[in-house]
Each structure stands twice: as C-alpha cells, then as structure tokens.
Amino acid sequence: MSPNCGHILQFKDFTIDTDQKVLLREGTPVALAPKVFETLLALIENHGRIVLKEELMKRLWPDTFVEEANLTFNIQQLRKSLGDNARSPIYIQTVARRGYRFIAAVETLASEHCSAETLANETGPATALTRHVSSTPQVQVPAARTRFIAILALVVIAMAGVGLVSWRFAIRGKGSSEDKATDGKTAPAKALKLEGLTATGQSRHVAISPDGKYVAYTRGSENLLGIWVRQLTTNTNVEIVSADRIGGLVFANSGESLYFVKGVPSALYRVSLLGGVPTKIIDRPEGNFSVSADGSQIAFTREVINRDGQREYSLLIANEDGRSLTFLYGLRIANQSFARTAVPPPGAWKLV
C-alpha cells in the first residue's frame, strides 16, 4: 500500500490515524502513551490473527530486555482506554500462554490524497470500465490539422513568455519601491504567547519531554508530593508517582520514561509514563543529576561526611542501570554542593 493511502483505520466507534499516531473516539482524541499506541497498532495490523507475546515485545522493545509484565500492563491500559473487558472481549482477545488477537472488524478508509487508480491497483483487479477505456481504439488525426495545432501551440507559448517577463519586471520594480519606503526598518517581531499549564502554584519541579508532547511536574503539599504527566495534545493529566520528598525530574531521551529522586535517604528512580512500580537506579544521590543524550549514562553528585566532620561531594557517572560507577571529581567544602551536573559528549567533560 502506498504511503498516502490506507493510513486511516476504523473499528466500531474508533478511528486511527497511523501517520499522526492519534486514536479518536467519535472524533475526540483518546490519550494513549506511545508504547500503548504501538501495541494497538501492532494488533490492528494483524487483526484476526494471533500475535505472539514474543513478537509484540520484540516490536515494542527492540534490542532491549524487558519483563513480560510490561506487555501485560500495556494491554491493560489499552483495554481500559477502549472500554474493553478481558472476560468478554469486544476488541482484544487473550490467547492463553501465546499472545493476543484483535477480533473487531477493521476497515481501511481512503484518504483524500488517494487517487481512484491507486486504490484500484491496491484493492483488486481493474474494473470493466477501466478495461473498456484502455481497449478503446485511437483516432487518427490528419497531418494538416496536426501542423495547425503545433503552430497554435507555439504562438500561445510565445505570448505566455512575454507576459511572464513583463510580470517579473513589474514585481521587481514594486519590490524596490517598497524597500526604499521602509528606509531600512525591519518588521516588528510577533509577541510570544505564554500559556499557563498548571494553576496550583505547587509545581517546584518541571520537565518537558524531548518530543515536546508531555510535561511532567510535581504537585502537592510539603508532606506528600505527586508526579503528574500532562499530554499536551489532549490536555489530560495523570498522576504516576507519589512520594514524601522529590528532588528532581528528567525525561529519558526516548520520552517513554521519567527519572526522579525521592525519599530520605534519597535514591534515583526510573518510572514509565504509563505508571507502575518505579525502578531504583542509584542510591544516595545528592539531588542534582543529568542523563546523557543516548540514555546510556547518568551523572550525579553524592554527599558524605568524612571522619573530620566535613562534607565531601563527589561527581560520579554510572550506566543506565546504576552499575559501573566512575569517580570523576571530588570536592571538600562546607555546606555547598555542585550547582549543576551535566553529561556532555565523550571526551568533552566539563565541571560546572
């Protein structure tokens, strides 16, 4: 199927735009996390057929080891968004110990960019009308008439060329006069539009996903804070984590998970945007941390009290799973810490 055709899929009250990666229910957007949408798309593309769990996990998390519970969680969230029931499924049927099957009828809708000829070539053999047109004999045109048409065409082309040249000179003269009138002044810049995303005044930590589709922020009282994620396209807010103390927020480069520091003593965690149980990565970070662009390394500071009662701060780097700690820099200083931690490209380390 050509790229411009068949990217609109419909089943019951739902419509999917595979190009825009949007799910609509009777024209209203349905909020889905990226991996949940990809799960739905994988099932619909194979509707009526069993999609094995291994096949789904390989598509959703290529070259990455994840537990099967992540796939189960995706299916639960998808059923919740579709209003489906695992015991009496309308859309997603569980095939025990094997996988899942999309059982609802799926219809492919033609987009406005699809031509009738393209759809005919993709959906089946040519119609009788197409075969009739293609088999119609050609009409022979007399030679004298052909010469007359050729001469007429040359005259039309010449007139069009003269008109085009005149038009370009006129536009050039008009542009020069406008440049003189402005006297070197540039057009005023448009004013920036500021839009408030939260209104509680309790958001001390905020992060924006790399693709600009999500905003994570903290909200709550001093005794209990929550990490909320807002999907900007649908303006929906979901709380994914609650804790008594939160020290920072950073999106993973993939935009599918969130890093944060919480607790006393503190620890660095990673949690999926779908929610679930956070995974502990690093113990006792001082609070400031940064994730490398490829997500493979985490830089952070750690504070200890030495035998002399002085505070020692260390700048460390670890792998994404918290292992292979590497000491980069140490500082013995009273009641201060590193202001910022960053992970630059290899070979370009900078302490700030």
Results as ranks from 00 to 15, higher is better:
V238C: 02
F300A: 09
E286D: 15
G276D: 12
L249T: 08
V343D: 03
T301A: 15
R270A: 02
L224P: 04
S324W: 03
Q297E: 10
V291F: 05
L258T: 02
D294K: 01
P344W: 02
V250L: 05
D294L: 00
L316K: 12
T236D: 13
T236L: 00
I333Q: 14
A348W: 14
A339L: 11
N306W: 11
F251S: 02
W228Q: 12
K280C: 02
T234K: 02
T236C: 01
Q297G: 01
T234R: 02
P346C: 03
G263V: 05
D321Y: 00
A342S: 13
N319I: 07
P345I: 04
V352Q: 08
R302M: 10
L351F: 11
L315H: 14
V291P: 15
A243M: 04
L316N: 14
V277H: 12
N235Q: 11
R230Y: 07
N235K: 12
G276H: 07
N306F: 12
G255I: 06
G275K: 01
L232D: 06
S242Y: 06
N237F: 13
Q297S: 15
F327M: 11
G248R: 06
I317C: 08
S292D: 03
L316F: 14
N237P: 09
L268K: 03
L232Y: 06
I333Y: 13
S257H: 04
L315D: 08
P285Y: 01
T234N: 00
S290M: 01
E303Q: 10
P285S: 00
G309N: 10
P345G: 05
K280V: 00
L315S: 10
F327K: 12
S314D: 10
K280G: 01
A318G: 07
T279V: 12
A318S: 09
R332Y: 09
P278K: 00
S272T: 04
G263F: 01
N237H: 11
L331C: 04
Q297N: 09
N223K: 13
I246A: 05
Y329M: 09
E286H: 08
V304P: 01
N235V: 05
